[in-house]
Design a protein around this nucleic acid. Structure first.
Length: 733
DNA sequence: GAGCACTGC
């Protein structure tokens, strides 16, 4: 055990705001015969009035009237997301049937906030207040306040380039700087310019920036200027203000309790151990309240979980009242829900979380936060086109976000497992995603929106030139761009319509020619979701445990852990590779679902049976459902494009030909030592052991995933069809 | 013979 973690000093609280205790109306109080819905309405009204933003309603509306763009910096709990759209609606911003659009980076936020606002407005969800996210549209012609994901608004812009339905667009959580948010900000700036120009000239809308081929706008319509509101929780509005030509920034106070920040004296060499020590230190020395510890991933969470229980045994009986609850995104949702269960009396809950608990999930009852100051983050190398996950220091903004989680319900404490001097060395805010991911999709979208000069596009943070060039090149090789770098017709235009990775879109288009669209659609849907295979590490059945313990003597543990799952998957596996294996799984699932459907028409019962089928076959239920959704969504697009769902039936060669033609950039050939060499760039790679071709090792393969962990692996592999491949590469390359 | 931060269309 390191000693450093025990010595701490206290620094003044960094996040505090004047706090007035709000008198809450208890719904359970009072006469039971009284009208409950009236009580609820009264309670909601009181809640709304007590929000910090309520006192500045008039000022905010005035600012929006006076300025076309404003930045609102609102701390957590200010009420900006739910209240501002209502203020603007009441102030007449939805006249002439115009809509106020509010974008969110996450689906769940769009849905929950819309539900809340519909209740506050006392309307049915989908009427005046609605939401739209992928696969779900809860809006109607009467919707005036529309919550949506930022990615969905980008898609809308493809059909309506000047977003003519909207009078106001509010970009919420802009500080998170997702790719979608960043592209949207650039687009909205242009839309604003275009609408303003048209408005001033009082002429039909014409411009050379935004494509304009949608028939509903070719009439002589006049558009009012677009009001743009950027909402951010970060204290630094300067970046946004500069980007929007000096737009005014307005601060709205939040409602957050003070959080004491504690640092270590010395850097901790082992943050996992330091986390463990801190958990026990809080448990033994501090008052009641749950602990939230941020860790980097599933493996680390499982390790700490185990170590906590091991060390608990060393404590006296009366101090063993700790309950650990892990949470990370790939955990099945029923298990995720455990964090919301009330802690049994006399127990202290210790939540072991990834950064899912930073923004996506708000856990009640947290009084103590442990922040080791690291995060697992995706790193993309544009030169090799490879992505890897690395553990790296967090940013100051992230550290603030984490400590804020301790002050949601009362004063809290945050233990930063690093010295204060280290805090000041952290970067101010996380590098925007657009600077660390593949840009192929972004470039394709921008081209489809009519922006031809990608390098000159007005990004808030410009991606590197090399990343843009690499994407342009990839899109050119896929046939989406012409020799002069314009979107090709029809391939490029079609590709941009699909909500898929460009390379998958291309595969779909090609598979029409190869008469195996049905199969490719399944492959693309299955590849577009998280891993379809689920291999639990725990909950081994007793009989298995005995075998496991015996077998431990002979094999390494992973072999046994996955034995059962492996044997379940065996019946799906195809000798031609992982792609046809995925097709078999998908079809088996659909067949099973239809069988159940013929017995019952209750959707819930069908869902339940399907999850049981998934569990029996070690398939990830959530991923499979997602793949089914993607499949039906893309099918609609294909029908709209008059592409018929042709199947190659048993003609596997035809499918391999198509796969090879689609993914020729991802071809690799076997080397004498059993490793593979990527034909396009000479990179040396290994077949991932999860592949059905791991042992077979064919001469030439096509892969659809390249990842770097301890080694450079390719995953999702099929046998290439050599004659097809020779069309793209010289025979001796 | 191995490993999965978090989102999104």
């Amino acid at each position: 055990m390191s000693e450093g973690a025990c010595e701490r000093r206290c620094f003044p609280s960094i996040s505090r705001s004047p706090l007035k205790e709000q008198k809450m109306v208890n719904l359970n109080e009072g006469s039971k015969t009284s009208n409950k819905s009236l009580d609820r309405k009264h309670w909601i009204l009181q809640q709304r009035r007590s929000l910090p933003i309520a006192s500045v309603e008039r000022r905010l509306v005035d600012e929006v009237r006076k300025n076309d763009t404003i930045i609102i910096v609102g701390e957590t709990g200010s009420g900006k997301t739910t209240q501002l759209p209502q203020y603007l609606f009441n102030a007449g911003f939805c006249r002439d049937g115009k809509v106020i659009g509010i974008t969110q980076p996450r689906r769940v936020a769009a849905v929950t906030v819309a539900k809340r606002v519909a209740e506050e407005c006392d309307v049915q969800l989908g009427q005046k207040v609605g939401y739209a996210i992928r696969f779900e549209d809860a809006t109607s012609t009467s919707t005036r306040i529309k919550y949506m994901t930022d990615g969905l608004l980008l898609r809308e812009a493809l059909l309506d380039p000047i977003l003519s339905r909207y009078s106001v667009i509010i970009v919420d959580e802009a500080h998170e700087r997702t790719v979608h948010t960043d592209v949207l900000l650039g687009l909205l700036k242009k839309v604003q310019d275009a609408r303003l120009k048209q408005h001033k000239l009082d002429k039909p809308y014409i411009n050379n920036v935004v494509k304009f081929d949608n028939e509903c706008h070719s009439s002589n319509m006049k558009f009012a200027p677009l009001k743009l509101i950027i909402m951010s929780a970060s204290l630094d509005a300067k970046g946004f203000s500069e980007y929007f030509c000096g737009a005014k920034a307005v601060y709205v106070q939040g409602r957050q309790y003070p959080v004491d920040i504690l640092y270590t004296y010395h850097p901790e060499p082992d943050y996992v151990d330091a986390t463990l020590i801190t958990i026990f230190q809080i448990h033994l020395d501090d008052g009641p309240g749950d602990i939230l510890a941020f860790l980097t991933g599933q493996e680390e969470i499982e390790l700490v979980d185990m170590l906590v229980h091991e060390r608990l045994k060393q404590l006296p009986e009366c101090s063993r009242n700790i309950l650990t609850v892990p949470i990370y995104s790939s955990l099945p949702s029923e298990q995720q829900m455990n964090v919301f269960r009330p802690t049994p009396s006399n127990f202290r809950k210790v939540i072991l979380a990834t950064n899912i608990a930073e923004t996506s999930v708000t856990i009640p009852g947290v009084k103590y936060v442990i922040d080791p100051g690291v995060v697992k983050s995706r790193y993309y190398n544009p030169v090799t086109g490879m992505e890897s996950l690395i553990i790296m220091p967090i940013s100051k903004a992230q550290a603030l976000q984490r400590s804020g989680r301790a002050g949601r319900e009362g004063p809290g404490k945050c233990f930063r497992l690093y010295p204060e001097s280290e805090f000041w060395k952290l970067i101010d805010s996380t590098v925007p995603e657009i600077k660390r991911c593949s840009l192929s999709n972004v470039v394709l979208q921008l081209k489809a929106l009519g922006f031809d000069d990608i390098i000159g596009f007005d990004f808030m943070d410009k991606p590197t030139r090399s990343a843009i060039k690499q994407s342009l090149q990839e899109l050119y090789l896929l046939g989406a761009l012409t020799d002069d770098c314009k979107l090709s017709d029809p391939v490029g235009i079609q590709m941009a319509r699909f909500p898929l990775d460009p390379i998958y879109s291309k595969a779909l288009i090609l598979s029409g020619e190869f008469k195996c669209l049905e199969e490719m659609l399944i492959v693309v849907a299955m590849l577009s979701v998280e891993s379809i295979f689920y291999s639990p590490r725990e909950k081994l059945e007793e009989s298995v445990v005995i075998i496991y313990e015996m077998a431990l003597l002979y094999f390494s543990p992973p072999v046994i852990f996955y034995y059962k799952a492996r044997s379940a998957w065996k019946k799906f596996s195809s000798p031609d590779g992982d792609h046809l294996t995925l097709v078999t799984i998908f079809r088996a699932a659909v067949e099973y679902r239809e069988k159940i459907r013929s017995a019952t028409n209750k959707e819930k019962a069908i869902d339940k049976s399907l999850s049981r089928w998934c569990r029996d076959n070690f398939i990830n239920n959530r991923s499979l459902k997602h793949a089914l959704d993607v499949h039906s969504q893309i099918k609609v697009y294909l029908e709209q494009m008059d592409m018929s769902l042709s199947s190659c039936g048993d003609d596997v060669l035809q499918f391999r030909r198509c796969l090879t033609a689609s993914f020729f950039l991802n071809a690799a050939e076997k080397q004498p030592d059993g490793s593979y060499r990527v034909k396009a760039n000479g990179q040396n790679v290994q077949i991932h052991p999860s592949s059905v071709l791991f042992r077979t090792k064919p001469e030439c393969i096509i892969f659809t995933e390249l990842i770097q962990t301890n080694q450079i692996y390719v995953r999702n592999i099929s046998r290439a069809w050599m004659p097809e491949l020779s069309q793209y590469y010289d025979v001796e390359s």
